[in-house]
Design a binder for these strands. Structure first.
Lengths: 214, 214
DNA sequence: GACTTGCGCTACCGCAAAGTAGCGTAAGTC
DNA sequence: GACTTACGCTACTTTGCGGTAGCGCAAGTC
């Protein structure tokens, strides 16, 4: 979670310099944005209604509009507030490419691998709404996430580690595809397989997100 | 393309047995359904309007409603009319698992690999609309498609071929992830890499489609 | 205490899009 | 030719939802 941006107040009457009067109560912004993201995941962009966001949060709809000018702005803020994936350069080197990749997979970003995948599905619909929204998703979610993996991989290639590594771990693929037929990640599966599976999944779903046909 | 189902006429006045009067002109059903699918891909379910489907097809909106009772019915028909992936049992054995998998990848189902992926993206939003629609997508698209790969793979495992095969071809993975950063499949890439990439992509996107959180 | 501005509420506007009604006409069956 | 039903058209109703107006009150600053 990040601070919800200067809230770009929808239309604030500008009193020069100093502000008086009752201040914004930003204590519940995080809750609003979290609920927005939840709804986005459950229903997709078009079926998110601000009435429902307001109801869930216990805020008045008008309050939402005091902070974000449009629904699109609110959703963008929610996406931004979800934070960004870890940066490759700041991650400790765990000794092997594989370990480094798995660390990213298991990072708590977007609630961890399970929920992350759900969010991707929700975002897929949002990319069809507007260029602006699609751009935000790309620049805030897709690109940075793929970038981590790419960086880790390139680093490993430069070290000459890569090929051997992949050759060693790819028997897993033989299990991955049949496992997919369950269509659930929650079913029991050996941990290593799961991890590798999710990493591929995440990446590829992102690629699909970037591939809207507009 | 399949015959567009008995069209389950929205509400037909039942004259017993024999029908007289001007018959339905089903010659353009395929066109209607194709345009519906196109729009679904371009815009996502919510932004498909029947006015636009009608306009594109050159038919009157009321004509659409004479054939499909609701928008949802029309979209379902469009998905059904898109046909099903090839069945594993009917595919010729090309000698290696890899060749068999690639044959599926390159099958013309849903317009071939490129367009197929776009359609998946469009369907992702539709899975959030209703249980019924989600079920159709799962049973008509997701399940059968994953099933092909699964069957081919299992067959290969039973033959003892699998592990060796995958080990031999997985250096590709080292290229796949960085290549994804382009977020386009249309960029130039060596054919074998592309094929393998797309096969993974297709499969995994499908898994994501099956994973709606409703 | 005077002033300012956010909050919650209720009511409302505007618009897009699903779905319908009814008409004149086309294309069939008997 | 009489009859029936689809087609295209225009106009309409309904609904949901984004977004706004204005009020009484809360929570701050001076």
């Amino acid at each position: 979670m990040e601070t919800p941006a200067p809230a770009s107040p929808a239309r604030r009457t500008v009193t020069n310099g100093q502000r008086t009067g009752r201040p914004y109560d930003h204590s519940s912004d995080a809750l609003i944005l979290a609920n927005t993201l939840d709804l986005l995941v459950e229903r997709g962009y078009e079926r998110v209604t601000l009435d429902e966001v307001a109801a869930r949060t216990g805020k008045a709809k008008t309050t939402l509009y005091r902070r974000w000018a449009t629904k699109e702005d609110l959703v963008i803020a929610a996406i931004r507030a979800a934070g960004r994936p870890p940066e490759a350069d700041r991650l400790p080197d765990l000794g092997s490419l594989r370990a480094n990749l798995l660390a990213v997979v298991d990072s708590p970003w977007l609630g961890g691998p399970q929920r992350r995948l759900s969010i991707f599905a929700g975002l897929a619909s949002a990319t069809q709404v507007s260029e602006r929204l699609a751009d935000v998703i790309r620049s805030e979610v897709t690109e940075p996430y793929v970038e981590v993996y790419r960086r880790l991989l390139h680093r490993s290639i430069d070290d000459g580690e890569t090929t051997a590594h992949f050759a060693a771990s790819t028997d897993l693929l033989a299990e991955v595809i049949p496992a997919m037929s369950t269509h659930r990640l929650s079913t029991s599966r050996e941990p290593v397989q799961r991890d590798f599976f999710v990493s591929v999944v995440d990446d590829v779903v992102l690629a699909a997100l970037g591939m809207t046909t507009r």
